[in-house]
Design a protein around this nucleic acid. Structure first.
Lengths: 116, 116
DNA sequence: TACACATCTTCGAATATTCGAAGATATTAA
DNA sequence: TTAATATCTTCGAATATTCGAAGATGTGTA
């Protein structure tokens, strides 16, 4: 009865998908508003090509969905709760951030939890 | 103010650590009881060397802690809530498991949530 | 001491990921 | 149609991960 193995494998897939800082930031930005590739690239100060590559991966795994309007490709989270769950994970990160105080982490938590 | 970037980087590190099925299973087993390398290896039907390598990585990132008793090295979760948080992540996996019904996922959720 | 047990560490090959560069596609405007 | 904009895809090199094998370390037992 290898259900637990199958479930662990899928969970690990999701974790792998979230295991890049750019993708974490993309998901957190999309938590509060739908954005196109350029919009994300400017917000995150990353090259558009890179954002596009990350979005392709997120889309392939059905984490984000695409809506096209003219030449713009807008992206949003398929399951907005995902962003909240990630923010919950901050609990397990607090002890690891030496240069960042708990207060600053709380600020990030609020930024990502509410409206940015 | 790159706090969000720092936080995203650390979150991504944690996700990378969880991005292997063996490590997910190890963490879920350690949620209910402290175990030594051989105990884990038998439970998960994996070679002891492999379990040891995963545990070394989890220990380096302070996800697990070690207690030595004679020639046995017992491991436990430093933050037991981590296992519960991972189980919460099952929400984002349910649609991806084609061969596993929702009822079976619920069973895994209970197995991992309570006593195994 | 000698031996078995439990675990760790190192090595190297196979595989996967990342990232910029360059070119391809699709849409709108001139 | 031509050109500009927005995005995607492919390529290849650099880097990282995985995993078994082999040997090293530490602990208990005869």
């Amino acid at each position: 009865m290898p259900n637990r193995q199958l479930v662990a494998r899928e969970l690990a897939e999701v974790f792998k998908l979230l295991s890049h800082p750019d993708r974490v930031r993309i998901i957190e930005e999309l938590a509060s508003s739908e954005l196109d590739v350029n919009g994300l690239a400017e917000l995150l100060e990353l090259p558009g090509t890179r954002v596009s590559q990350h979005l392709a991966k997120l889309k392939a795994h059905r984490v984000v969905e695409e809506r096209r309007d003219g030449r713009h490709h807008f992206y949003h989270l398929k399951q907005p709760d995902l962003a909240r769950w990630i923010v919950d994970g901050l609990t397990f990160v607090e002890g690891r951030l030496l240069g960042v105080s708990e207060g600053q982490i709380a600020t990030v938590r609020e930024l990502w939890a509410g409206s940015s």
